[in-house]
Amino acid sequence: MSDIRKELKYLSSHEWARVEEDGTVTIGITDHAQDALGDVVYVETPEVGTRVAIGEEAGVVESVKAASDIYSLVSGEVVAVNEALQDAPETVNGSPYDDGWFFRVKPDDLAELDEALDAAEYRELLESDE
């Protein structure tokens, strides 16, 4: 069974979000997603200063096997991206919830996260897919 973190919020498309102490929101892909993709070889993140919106493509992750769009769980301005993934995309496989984060957003409205799945709901989703 893949690793699901209690404190995170999730999308059915297998992104996670974490609210940081400064109120920004960090986005990445789940352990289940990295396992399904296999070895990640490229990560395309949005640029700092640009805006991302719920339901719109914010980036791309490509593995040897497949390409997959990345969606944000909140709308807002991108305030940081994980530059380390450019040279070491395999970090996404090894540490999807920590060193393998994708980008950080200053959210317009943090309440948007209420729409996302919590850990129990995401686990249920994965179990129903099996």
Binding site: G38, D39, V41, E90
Partner: peptide, 8 residues
């Protein structure tokens, strides 16, 4: 088997 951890 597709891989045993990392196909790369």
């Amino acid at each position: 088997p597709l891989h045993y951890g990392s196909q790369i």
